[in-house]
Design a protein around this nucleic acid. Structure first.
Lengths: 143, 143
DNA sequence: TATTATAATTGTAATAATTACAAATTTGTT
DNA sequence: AACAAATTTGTAATTATTACAATTATAATA
């Protein structure tokens, strides 16, 4: 399981006690930058860990997000997506196919503010919606 | 009902056929820039329109959002919030008291792009989370 | 090592926001 | 007035997430 040492290190860095399940979730996110939902993560991991519970996946994701190891993406009302990329970046969601992709930010002054007036800022999220290249080409978005 | 002419005009502008319910919802949002949820809107309007159905509120909000008369705010996973302020601005949510407030943007180049590479952008959302002035003062956010 | 305490995981049931859908009502048209 | 189309309503279904108690695993101590 040499591949999972990255996951263990990442948990260690943020002071999270490792467990089989936590390492599996962390490892999954480190290898799948597709912004998966809790359900997707559960279904994929369940194949190799048949004793896994969906509650554990939810608990673990919440724990990781609380410690800042991962980011919760609420780009739509359906379900939360998760991202192990904790560097400053934006997200795009295609209104047709539903894919969520990373957008790099050049001038990210707006995303790094720790204070706005008397507000104390702990998180910044920049979300774009529209149509991805593929869906745009296929003209699904023309009414 | 002179106050509701604004609501009617707004619907007209966007080519939405007015109805008692649609005008009521539109009027509510034009007079409550508190980013209310569908449930809040329903409960408040229900007092003066006892025949109102929650489904109608959801249908109407979806219709208005589709036509761009209002904006859907998905700043958290709990529920969608609605905003009749369609000028470019950001939103802040307090992690303690849950209030959602408007943030004005000075340099909003990032929020007005119509294209990013081959992506066609139709919506941009900038969300901040943290602690508002009141909650900050009360030190609720200190672990 | 055996025992006890603590923490993590599991499974099920509950919650809550939203949507589907068919019936009823309203509105617009000939 | 009669008919068609659009809108509203109420209820039931769906689905993501959480609550919670029981079980299992891990760590600490004797």
């Amino acid at each position: 399981m040499e591949i999972q040492t990255n996951a263990m290190n990442r948990l260690d860095e943020f002071g999270i006690k490792p467990s089989l399940q936590r390492i599996a979730v962390m490892n999954y996110l480190l290898n799948n930058y597709t912004h998966p939902t809790a359900d997707t993560i559960f279904n994929d991991l369940y194949l190799s860990i048949p004793t896994l519970s969906k509650t554990t996946v939810y608990n673990t994701l919440k724990l990781l997000a609380k410690h800042g190891v991962i980011i919760e993406i609420t780009i739509d009302d359906k379900n939360v997506r998760y991202d192990a990329n904790i560097t400053k970046h934006a997200h795009f969601k295609c209104k047709n196919c539903g894919c969520v992709i990373d957008i790099s930010i050049k001038n990210f002054k707006m995303m790094t503010m720790k204070k706005i007036g008397n507000l104390e800022i702990t998180e910044s999220h920049l979300y774009y919606k529209g149509y991805c290249e593929k869906c745009n080409k296929n003209s699904f978005n023309i009414l």
